[in-house]
Amino acid sequence: MSISLKQIRYFVAAAETGRISQAAVELNVSQSAVTAAIQQLEGMLGARLLDRTPTGVSVTLEGSRFLSQGRQILTAVAEAVRDARHSTDEISGTVRVGVTYTVSGYFLPRHQMRFQSSFPGISIELFEAPRSVVEQALVDGALDVAVLLVSNLNNREDLASQLLLRSARRLWLAPSHPLTRPERVSLADVARYPYVMLTVDEAKHTALRYWTALGLEPRTIFRTSSVEAVRSMVGGGMGITVLSDLIYRPWSLEGQRIELRDLSDEVPSMDVGLAWRRDASFTAATRAFCDFLRFAVAGDSTGRSASSDETRGRTGAIEI
Rank of each mutant, 00 (worst) to 15 (best):
M1E: 07
S2I: 04
I8M: 02
R9V: 05
R9K: 12
V12A: 04
A15N: 03
A15S: 09
I20F: 10
Q22W: 01
L27M: 10
T35Q: 12
Q39E: 14
Q40N: 15
M44D: 08
L45W: 01
G46R: 02
G56D: 02
V57I: 09
S58W: 03
G63T: 02
S64N: 14
S68M: 10
A84F: 03
I91G: 07
G98S: 07
V99W: 00
T100K: 05
Y101M: 11
R114T: 04
Q116G: 11
S117E: 13
V134R: 02
Q136W: 05
L138E: 00
V147L: 14
V150R: 04
L153F: 08
A160C: 12
S161I: 09
S161E: 05
L164D: 01
L165W: 01
A168E: 11
L171S: 05
L171D: 01
W172E: 10
L173V: 08
S176C: 12
S176K: 06
S176V: 03
H177W: 04
P182K: 06
R184M: 14
V185G: 06
L187R: 06
A191C: 06
V196G: 10
M197T: 08
L198E: 08
H205V: 15
H205W: 04
A207F: 01
A207G: 12
G215A: 09
E217T: 12
P218S: 10
S225N: 08
A229N: 11
V230H: 06
S232H: 09
M233V: 09
M233H: 08
G237T: 04
M238D: 13
G239Y: 01
V242L: 07
V242F: 02
L243R: 04
S244F: 07
D245K: 10
L246Y: 02
E254K: 11
E254M: 10
G255M: 02
D262I: 07
D265I: 07
S269H: 07
A275R: 00
D279N: 12
T286P: 02
R287Q: 13
A288T: 01
F292D: 00
L293E: 03
T302P: 12
T302M: 14
R304C: 14
S307T: 15
D309W: 09
D309C: 13
G313L: 11
R314H: 15
